[in-house]
Design a protein around this nucleic acid. Structure first.
Lengths: 337, 337
DNA sequence: CCGCTGCGTGCAACGGATTGCATTTGAAGG
DNA sequence: CCTTCAAATGCAATCCGTTGCACGCAGCGG
């Protein structure tokens, strides 16, 4: 492929036009304090008139920094329907905001594979300075492996027990506990956890649920429905299957709002009323949650804060500091379920 | 800021290790047919062993192409709640997919401003090769201006009458017409269009609506509710205001699903039953639409196809061809409203 | 045995900016 | 009037690949 377009004006050209040297122009564009105000003004003026802007690639080459952060959305490859997606997109928005403030570019990536090599090579080739992963997926061994390399990254998800890598996540245990306590208050006895314990975050939510339920006077019973993904449809089917086979719950704690909605539809299908017969609590407080019928009771987490934290931690990692994991607070939003 | 990290292995190093010259290594990584299979194999082997990958920035500098496409999501700056967001995120997914296939990076951008200069400078600095804009926003004069520059871009939205720039969009007029025809069939007489005619796409949908209604035996009446943004909340409020002041409609065509949901809530608040008293039709067929209560009747557009088209057209533009606008088909999905 | 064709490689000249160090200049200090 | 110092600017090396062109060598037809 031939190089594109006509020769474009370069720093040399601007330097010549402004009657200064190339380094001076360079410093002007870096806003270096070394340059006198008049010179700066003149150079900028000329540059603007000629539609010049610094060649980013040359700069990146020379400085050896990409000034770019890659966001990896760990979604099932084909399914663009994934209903937990809305949450991640909201998070994406907030993360991108934080990165723009720090004048970094946001590169969108699909998870190539779990092979650390793919990520190492993106760093080695200077396409990105670091990664933000959205969600750990089922099992996080690959992240532990990645942590052994020199790849800077942070993860939205559950804190790793062995603290091999830095995470920012909602306080899953506390979120679960809030749900558990509420069920306890409502006197619910047979609670179903709909999620997938292979995902570290889900496991923590379930753990919190247990603890919350333990505050009840009469011990409650927990059983599980594992779903392969967190789409509404999958949850609905899984729930229907369980309702047909096993006994009827009087409380349902769902790993995400979309799952909660699926569960509610399944409950309604077998004639159980929400919340009269069964209390349901979701997770994430998606925008849709409040408009679902009935409006969903759910655990909210602050994505805006999450976004800034993720960015902040990653920048620490880039500085060579080992960032501490963090959690964002969770609150119970009581609506009608 | 000092250059980061230790000196990393470069093409020279690999060349030396493999006992060949730098150009040869370069050609290996470009998968050039000039190189003999043995040499290629040997070089790749050595490169992999040393964790080498081509420095992307150097390559981009030399070839003068960014191999990157910027996606600009034209969302209101602050509001991350924008409920029409889900649709754009779905589209983002599909666009990104198309770009990955073409081995291009996806850069996420906020709309800096309507000033073409911002975009020109991103091109000049070779941070991106072109732009994909999601939505035109209210008024598209700035896009016409942008079209006069050398910036390659395509837009998701309504076709520009003067064809100043290339768009891909749903067949808005047809979509509107489908809605209009359905209202006609149902014998609806007083139809409300909830949208914002300043947005070209919305104007087209309304136009289609009119045409569709014209097929009725008895002429129907159209009036408008303009909303400032397309969030559920805004729509709900606007709708409530109108219901209080003006007469009651028996049909509502909403510019987007989130608006439709807002409208339904407002209708319910004043005691109007959907669909008994009022038929409501939305637009986009968001994943949530089918789970709303009652499940939303709406106009669906194929985002997957839209994504590929956008990408395809943009690449034509990059090749210097002036791409033709295109539309993706729309279908009426009849549910319970 | 010679000249030609083509494949596989190497040479060297870029591409556009950054930066450590040297240099100029004007003002302040002696 | 001569230093001395800081501020402002210039010099030249460097970052790492890509590519037009030249070259060596093997095989082939004459």
């Amino acid at each position: 492929m031939p190089p594109r377009k006509q020769k474009l004006t370069s720093m040399d050209d601007i330097a010549r036009l402004a009657g200064v040297s190339k380094p001076t122009v360079s410093r002007v564009f870096k806003d270096s304090p070394l340059i006198s105000p008049q010179t700066k003004k003149r150079v900028l003026e000329i540059a603007r008139r000629h539609g010049y802007s610094v060649n980013w690639n040359a700069r990146k080459l020379r400085t050896n920094r990409a000034n770019t952060i890659a966001v990896v959305m760990h979604l099932p490859p084909q399914t663009s329907e994934t209903a937990s997606a809305p949450f991640f997109f909201q998070l994406l928005n907030d993360v991108a905001g934080g990165l723009w403030i720090r004048r970094h570019d946001v590169l969108l990536c699909a998870p190539e594979s779990d092979d650390p090599y793919a990520y190492e090579s993106m760093i080695a080739s200077r396409r990105t300075d670091g990664f933000i992963f959205f969600g750990q997926g089922p099992g996080d061994q690959w992240l532990r492996n990645l942590a052994r390399t020199r790849v800077p990254f942070v993860v939205w998800g559950a804190a790793d027990e062995r603290a091999a890598y830095c995470t920012v996540g909602s306080d899953n245990r506390r979120g679960g506990m809030l749900a558990g306590k509420r069920f306890a208050e409502l006197g619910r006895q047979r609670v179903l956890f709909v999620g997938n314990r292979a995902h570290p975050e889900m496991a923590q939510r379930r753990e919190g649920l247990e603890r919350g339920l333990a505050t009840a006077k009469r011990a409650a019973d927990i059983s599980d429905v594992d779903v392969a993904d967190f789409t509404l449809e999958t949850a609905r089917r899984a729930m229907a299957a369980v309702l047909a086979r096993r006994g009827r719950p009087d409380g349902v704690f769902a790993g995400s709002d979309s799952v909660a909605m699926g569960a509610i539809l399944a409950l309604r299908d077998v004639g159980l009323a929400v919340p009269a017969d069964v209390s349901v609590i979701g997770y994430n407080d998606l925008p849709m949650a409040q408009y679902f019928q009935p409006p969903l009771t759910t655990i909210r987490q602050d994505t805006h804060q999450a976004g800034s934290l993720l960015v902040e931690k990653l920048f620490q990692a880039l500085e060579g500091v080992r960032p501490e994991p963090a959690t964002v607070p969770t609150t119970l939003v009581v609506r009608d379920t």
